[in-house]
């Protein structure tokens, strides 16, 4: 058995959870291995130290606080409101806004998204299409300017 395995067993020995033959074997090892004997002593001392410094609550105020909360909660059974859904409202609102943004509002301003009217129809009325190319328009424009 490896050294580390013995020390793991020694930890169990300290807690008194090692059964008969295994405990005997570990104890026998302690007599012939000074490192493990030292580890055993240290673990026993550590256990003692941890037990010594176990803090205790000197007053009963915490227990009384607990009891007060419990009696308060049992007397208000049936009248409690579940606010968890209300607390989640901003998150759902944000998700809704993002969903609209990704879907309807893509490439539009908020005003455009909210005011739905067809602007292309109005533009056609404003600039009438005579099936002219841009060059034709520019030539016409130049001639009219020169003719002034």
């Amino acid at each position: 058995m490896r050294h580390i395995d013995y020390q793991k067993r020694i930890s169990l020995l300290v807690d008194g959870v090692l059964d008969g033959p295994a405990a005997k074997e570990a104890l026998a090892h302690l007599t012939e291995c000074s490192d493990c004997a030292r580890a055993y002593e240290e673990m026993v001392s550590l256990n003692k130290a941890l037990t010594n410094v176990k803090p205790s609550l000197s007053d009963l105020s915490l227990a009384n606080k607990v009891k007060a909360r419990i009696s308060g909660s049992s007397s208000s059974v049936g009248y409690t409101w579940n606010f968890s859904l209300l607390k989640q409202a901003p998150i759902w609102a944000l998700i809704a806004i993002l969903a609209v943004g990704v879907g309807d509002m893509a490439g539009k301003t908020l005003t455009e998204a909210l005011k739905t009217y067809d602007t292309s129809h109005n533009l056609e009325n404003l600039i009438q299409d005579h099936s002219e190319s841009l060059t034709d328009v520019l030539i016409d424009f130049g001639q009219s300017e020169n003719g002034r």
Binding site: P55, S56, L62, A63, K65, V66, R69, I70, S73
Partner: peptide
């Protein structure tokens, strides 16, 4: 069991106040 619960909570949170809150909440 208050003291034991307090010690467990105190060892994890490292804070007296938080441990007290945890104990109250746990019992509730």
């Amino acid at each position: 069991h208050t003291t034991t619960a307090y010690r467990v909570a105190r060892s994890i949170t490292g804070s007296h106040e938080e441990a007290e809150d945890v104990v109250q909440e746990s019992f509730l």
